[in-house]
Design a protein around this nucleic acid. Structure first.
Lengths: 196, 196, 196, 196
DNA sequence: AATGAATGAGGATTCATTCAT
DNA sequence: GATGAATGAATCCTCATTCAT
């Protein structure tokens, strides 16, 4: 009643339901890039465009901006968990993977600390759980008596490093991240994504 | 006869040029609050409203969002400089003042590190200069051989602490800020605004 | 942050605040026409366009569709009240005016009966009050012992007539309205707007 | 080895052509409910969902919203016709059945009067025919000299009653419907669906 | 110099409709 | 025949910015 009327036109082909999973994945990838480039406030339409899908698909998979952002985080967290679960994983190795994600989309991991000051804070609910998962992944490799073993110090350190990660190029961000870990006397392994 | 005697609409009266300064100040205060509450993307109209002035006044004083945000930062930086210039000021005292601003409007000082990842990066130009002023204010009180004396380490530490400053209440943010400084083995004096 | 960027372009001139009242009135007129032609679900943008104002003006004056619809009703009701308040007004004369509005925008007066079945029912709150005003305007001219004097019969009759008012042309709707009143044995004066 | 044994997604299974009729019926039922709850402008997808079928099925059976709405009406009309065709049927009995439908989905029977004022008027074509069928069903039981015997008065009365039928609960709507018929001096039998 | 209404582009969101599977 | 994902136009709504008064 309040809607369109003549959608007649030609149409770019419907890849069919099979593409659903592919589309979802493409959206997450596109979102990571777009958010990284233009911030969390970037137009969702830009994400859909970059993913090569209609806006409707974006809304089908992610009802709101928060869901979309959470999905990207989720993916990051999963990789950190996988790195932590690997045979012979060490703290420094896991930190290397996590740091990679920090430099890849700093804006995001920054969200792992429920930020009540922004209207994007709604993301917190999920973020809190994700934060817990990251903490768990790291803590299992933390030597019992470590100076970061105290209750919140581990994630506090992560937050601090994420705060340090700024700069236009990934190289610059990585350099700052490593310098930050060094200031904290924490050894970090090679900064790289998990597998893939 | 049926005429109204005063067809001239009431108008808030022009306070004259004297009000200009007052208006500007009110806008900065309002901006600090609004930005803190709703993030840097908050409607400028909300700031004008909270300041009790028309939107035109906001634009007269601050041509764009960046100018407005910079003005808030400027104010913070000035206080840090004043604290540093005080007779007998010490590093820990200056850090206390700076930390207060960090907990007051974390989102902002965070901007002191030219953040190329957001579309608000335009703020950088001025931010860089502000960042330099903060660094200078701190460095003059830094013992020559201090571990933070190296080129960028000082501001890196500030960035790290600002990254740690999250949470809905000021108390919580202050606690986290102090914990962060502690992790860096940096002593911080009383967290409070300068004078005022 | 999530908003526009280059509004540069030429601009159709700003008539200034003086036009505020004129604009509001134009919107109500346009709304009456558009709603009558395309139903209550018509695009609000169409109303703004027909009124010759930007969409923002519409939203400034009427925060939502309900407010806009209520404003149109309000205007109708006011005319009925004025007709009722006139020197020597009679029930049939007032009914004539009301019937005119019924035939002019049937969809609307139909709303005077809080319709809980539609998602537009939010309009009810105000509608109930408007309905009361119409009832009052009519009842003051209703002979004490009249068969419609019973509690709800008066407005029930109005609802019935509004239900009868259908058809593409105003003439047709007027004919049906009069036939409906006749079936109810109610005498109605000339069908016409009040004054104007 | 790492392969899933059934890479074929589960699919609700094709019930075969037998289900076609069942689906159609389910859609009509769902449409009646959804339209009643959310108005004629309700999303068609909501109807499909409530009917437990895919949207494609809805389109297969009903090419557009109008067809869907007409189908619901059709069902109502059929029941009225059956009531009228029953042995020993009387006008008041048939009116009772029709009134039941009026209170069940007022929004609909209201459509029996080709409403040119809404963009849903497309429904008219079929509605006119349905209206004719209702009129016939009633007229055969109308005493020759009845005051409603005149050309259009019968359906005008129906329209009037349907206009009176408003309110959130069925009970309230039934009460108003009966009050309306009473104002028209028309006797109505028990308000109930036919058979079932 | 201040007010605050107006403009209108941009981004959010919703469905009607199609179509691969 | 059925499913339900995909498309994308249309509409909603929000501000940044201008400007008459």
């Amino acid at each position: 009643m309040t809607q369109q009327s003549s959608p007649v036109e030609r149409r770019p082909a419907n890849q069919g339901p099979k593409a659903a999973a592919r589309n979802r994945a493409a959206l997450v990838v596109a979102a990571r890039e777009v958010f990284a480039e233009h911030g969390l406030g970037a137009p969702l339409s830009a994400i859909a465009r970059r993913a090569g899908v209609g806006q409707g698909v974006l809304y089908r998979h992610f009802p709101d901006r928060t869901a979309m952002a959470s999905a990207v985080l989720e993916e990051n967290v999963r990789q950190v968990e996988q790195a932590a679960a690997e045979e012979g994983a060490t703290l420094s190795a896991v930190l290397g993977v996590m740091t990679w994600h920090l430099t890849e989309s700093a804006a995001f991991i920054g969200l792992l600390h429920a930020d009540g000051a922004t209207n994007l804070s709604d993301i917190s609910a999920h973020a809190v759980s994700l934060s817990g998962r990251v903490e768990h992944a790291l803590r299992v490799h933390l030597p019992p008596g470590d100076r970061l073993a105290a209750s919140d110090d581990l994630m506090l350190a992560v937050a601090m490093v994420s705060g340090a990660v700024t700069g236009p190029t990934r190289e610059q961000r990585e350099r700052r991240a490593l310098a930050a870990w060094r200031l904290l006397d924490v050894e970090v392994g090679p900064v790289r994504p998990y597998e893939v």
